[in-house]
Each structure stands twice: as C-alpha cells, then as structure tokens.
Simulated assay, not measured.
Amino acid sequence: MSGRRYHSPRRAEAAAATRQSILDAAKELFATHGYVATTVTRIAAAARVGTNTVYSSIGGKPQILIDLVTAGVEDPVADRTLARIAAADDARDIVVYAVEGVRRDSEKHADVIEILLDAASVDAHAAEVLRLAQERFRDALRATADRLAALGALREGLDAADATDVLWYYLGLSSWRVLVRENGWDWDTAERWLRNRTVAALLTG
C-alpha cells in the first residue's frame, strides 16, 4: 500500500477559503475594534468557524497579523515597480515610478497599514511585525537610491544612504497616513505633492 498522502483539490480549496474568511474577519475586526481588543474567539465567530479552526488554519493573533501584512509586503506591485526603476535611465522617471508604486501599494493596503501602525504602539508582537515590514520597505527604497546614485543624479552632498533616508521621510508609511488620513487629502493630491518634494530633495537641476 502506498505511503503517499492523498491530496484532495476540493479539500485544499475549502481550507484556503476558510483561511481567507478568517483573515477577512480579523482584518475587519482589527480595523473596527483594534488589535488588542479583538480576541481569537471573536474572529472565529465572525468567520463562522470554531476557535480551534482559527489556530489550526493560521495560528493566534500575531500570526494572523503577520499574514495580513505579508500580503502587502509581497504584493507584485513592488516587484514591478523595482523592475521599472532598474530599467530606467532618467532620474526623474525613477522618482515618479517609485512614488507611484508606493502610492498604489499604500492605497491598496491602507487598512492593514493602519491596523499595524496602531497595534505596534501597544503590542510587542505587532511592533516586531512593523519593524520587519519597515526593513523590507527600506530595502526597496535603497534599491531606488542606488539606481539614482549610479546615474550620478543625486544632489551634491547626498549619497545612496542619505537618499534612502530622504525617500523614507517622504514615502514611508507615516507620510501617507498623515496626508491622507489626518489631513484629509485625496490620494492623487498626496502623490503629486510627495513626488514634487522628493524630486526637489534628491535630484540635481
């Protein structure tokens, strides 16, 4: 008798659907009631599954938050943006592509970013998830800064490390939150303003 495990496509699809329902329920509850106040039991009830199913499908709240954030970190928008930047020879185009890509990713995942920033201020697990997400984000911005430096396009006195800091200042998670959520700007206005300020801060001429 074969020792190989039987794989059922239907079972796999059902498991994936259950997992997504849990993530969707958790995201809505985190956004509405806060990460700390939301319990796994409440997530299970909203997803219409048992509490044990939440743990067996994903895990506890820290892992649920990680999975929600991972969807944003690994969004293909980031890879496509970096590919455009790597292929570009015009410095202003590179900044335009960077700002546009960060805007698209930030807007698409704005609810999860808000959850993460709020949770990180009160929960150690969430703070670590935020640190890792920011590290990945800064790596991507460093690739943009390196490309600008390689083209000799940076303002006098700036190197790639300085340019990375400037990009983080203008395009980091908090920048979009302040402009869109706190100031009430629309995303197009925020993108245009950040693009113009980033160009002015980084590029010669």
Results as ranks from 00 to 15, higher is better:
residue 190 A to F: 02
residue 21 S to N: 12
residue 94 I to A: 07
residue 100 E to I: 02
residue 74 E to V: 08
residue 46 A to Q: 11
residue 1 M to A: 09
residue 53 T to S: 15
residue 180 V to M: 03
residue 11 R to M: 07
residue 56 S to W: 00
residue 64 I to V: 10
residue 156 E to C: 03
residue 111 D to F: 02
residue 1 M to Y: 01
residue 124 A to V: 12
residue 197 R to C: 04
residue 186 D to R: 01
residue 196 N to W: 02
residue 136 R to G: 07
residue 29 L to V: 11
residue 102 V to Y: 07
residue 173 L to D: 13
residue 138 R to G: 06
residue 160 A to E: 13
residue 171 L to E: 04
residue 152 G to W: 00
residue 132 L to I: 08
residue 14 A to F: 01
residue 83 A to F: 10
residue 72 G to C: 00
residue 46 A to H: 06
residue 84 R to M: 08
residue 91 A to Q: 10
residue 114 E to D: 15
residue 117 L to F: 06
residue 146 D to K: 02
residue 103 R to F: 05
residue 52 N to R: 13
residue 78 A to E: 09
residue 193 W to S: 00
residue 138 R to M: 11
residue 149 A to R: 03
residue 167 L to E: 10
residue 183 N to D: 03
residue 140 A to L: 01
residue 79 D to G: 12
residue 43 I to K: 07
residue 79 D to T: 10
residue 173 L to G: 13
residue 154 L to G: 06
residue 44 A to D: 11
residue 136 R to H: 04
residue 89 D to E: 11
residue 88 A to S: 13
residue 191 E to T: 13
residue 76 P to K: 00
residue 74 E to C: 10
residue 155 R to D: 07
residue 175 S to Q: 08
residue 140 A to Q: 06
residue 118 D to P: 09
residue 158 L to D: 06
residue 190 A to D: 00
residue 52 N to D: 15
residue 205 G to D: 15
residue 69 V to G: 05
residue 159 D to P: 08
residue 28 E to T: 12
residue 121 S to F: 03
residue 118 D to T: 11
residue 101 G to S: 06
residue 91 A to V: 14
residue 52 N to Q: 13
residue 184 G to D: 00
residue 50 G to R: 12
residue 151 L to T: 03
residue 191 E to Q: 15
residue 79 D to F: 01
residue 111 D to Q: 14
residue 167 L to C: 13
residue 185 W to V: 01
residue 88 A to R: 08
residue 93 D to H: 12
residue 143 A to Y: 00
residue 52 N to I: 10
residue 202 L to K: 01
residue 35 Y to D: 05
residue 98 A to R: 07
residue 187 W to E: 03
residue 203 L to W: 10
residue 200 A to E: 07
residue 22 I to V: 15
residue 185 W to R: 04
residue 200 A to L: 02
residue 44 A to P: 06
residue 117 L to M: 12
residue 137 F to H: 10
residue 15 A to L: 14
residue 145 A to Q: 02
residue 123 D to E: 05
residue 127 A to K: 09
residue 6 Y to M: 11
residue 70 T to H: 08
residue 122 V to A: 14
residue 204 T to N: 12
residue 165 D to K: 08
residue 59 G to R: 06
residue 164 T to V: 03
residue 155 R to N: 03
residue 168 W to L: 08
residue 136 R to Y: 04
residue 79 D to E: 13
residue 81 T to W: 01
residue 118 D to V: 07
residue 185 W to A: 02
residue 103 R to K: 15
residue 135 E to I: 01
residue 150 A to M: 07
residue 127 A to I: 01
residue 177 R to T: 15
residue 58 I to W: 05
residue 188 D to R: 06
residue 148 L to K: 04
residue 138 R to A: 14
residue 49 V to W: 13
